[in-house]
Structure formats: C-alpha cells, structure tokens
C-alpha cells in the first residue's frame, strides 16, 4: 500500500490501513519523541498522541511533503508542547512541594553520604550533555536533535522544520557554539 492509499484508507476509517500506518511508522515516531523527551514513558504517551492526531487529520494531508516528514513534524511539535506543559506542571509542583515542605526531604534524599564524590562527578558529567542540549533555544535544539540524534540530513531537517537549508545550517552551527560554551564553562570550573 502506498502512502497515498494508506492516507485515503485512514481518512475513510479503514482499520487495516490504520494498523499498517501505525506499525510502519511507530519506531520512527517513538524515537523522535524519545530524543526530545529523554523519558520512555513520556515518549510512549506522546507517540500515541502523534498517531491520534495523524489519523484524525489524515484527510487534511495535502501531500506536498512526504508522509514521514509530516509525521516527524507532528512528533516534534507534540514533543515540544509536552516539554512546555511539563515546565508549567513543574512550576505548580514546586509550589505544591514548597507548601508541603517536601523540598527539605528532597534535598535530604539527594545528599546521601554513602555515594562517593567521584561517582557523583561522573554522573554529573554524563548528565551535563543532556542538560546543555535542553538549555538551547527551541529552534536550535530541534535542529540539533534531528540532525545529531535522529541522523537526519540538513535538507531533511529543513523540510521537517519547514524552513530553508541555510537557516538549518545556521541553527545547528549556533547550537554547537552554545553547547561548546556551556561544556567548556563546566570543564574550566571543574
């Protein structure tokens, strides 16, 4: 079944088309979501939402991009939305834990004396890469993640982000500079 036939089947509510569509693309969608969210449970939830949106909007797909590009686009947008919602949720959670005096207990549990300091430093250095990528501006982060973690070419990233090739080059270049600066700062401090 071609992409077009698949989409026609989806638009008409054909269950076999739905199953094939999900089975064909689930790995790609899940892995994109995971690259952004860095959490298996969240990636699974968001991947499901991506397919729900795609199945419901199959009739609106104009066919001016590849089906996989369209799915990537939905996956990236959904993942970024999830991260934004998480930020808001974290804000409320912090308020909640402040009033419940959980902050003190969290701090206590994080400073277990039996964890050796070199192990902590090792963990810190490993987590630093992820944290540095997280702190990049959204567009730089998207371009860098799609290129470096999803192995998409610059032109594929441009298609997914609906922008020009030169913009993607610039975004990835700036993302690298930002990451170098952050990692060097850490390296110099330590």
């Amino acid at each position: 079944m071609t992409d077009l036939e698949l989409l026609n089947g989806l638009a008409q509510g054909d269950p076999s088309a739905g199953r094939q569509f999900v089975d064909d693309h689930q790995l790609k969608v899940y892995n994109v979501c995971y690259s952004f969210l860095q959490n298996e449970h969240d990636a699974q939830d968001v991947a499901q939402e991506v397919f729900i949106e795609a199945i419901r909007n199959a009739g609106k797909f104009r066919g001016d991009a590849k089906l996989s590009t369209w799915l990537y686009r939905i996956a990236v947008n959904r993942s970024l939305n999830h991260l934004r919602d998480n930020k808001k949720r974290r804000f409320w959670k912090e308020i909640d834990s402040f009033f419940n005096f959980k902050v003190a207990s969290d701090l206590q549990s994080g400073s277990e004396p039996n964890i050796a300091s070199d192990k902590l430093e090792q963990k810190e250095q490993q987590l630093l890469i992820g944290e540095a990528i997280k702190s990049l501006p959204e567009k730089q982060r998207t371009a860098f993640t799609l290129n470096k973690l999803e192995d998409l070419s610059y032109s594929e990233v441009a298609e997914v982000m609906n922008t020009t090739l030169s913009s993607v080059e610039s975004l990835i270049h700036r993302a690298r500079l930002g990451l170098q600066k952050k990692l060097r700062n850490y390296y110099n401090q330590s």
Partner: peptide, 16 residues
C-alpha cells in the same frame, strides 16, 4: 563520561 553521556541520550530508543 562525555561520550557515555552522549550515548545515554539514545539509550531509551527502540529498535523493535
């Protein structure tokens, strides 16, 4: 540690 950290970003990816 940096390389392990970078590889860790792909640790939860699925192949199946």
């Amino acid at each position: 540690n940096y390389h392990e950290g970078f590889n860790h970003l792909s640790a939860g990816r699925r192949s199946q």
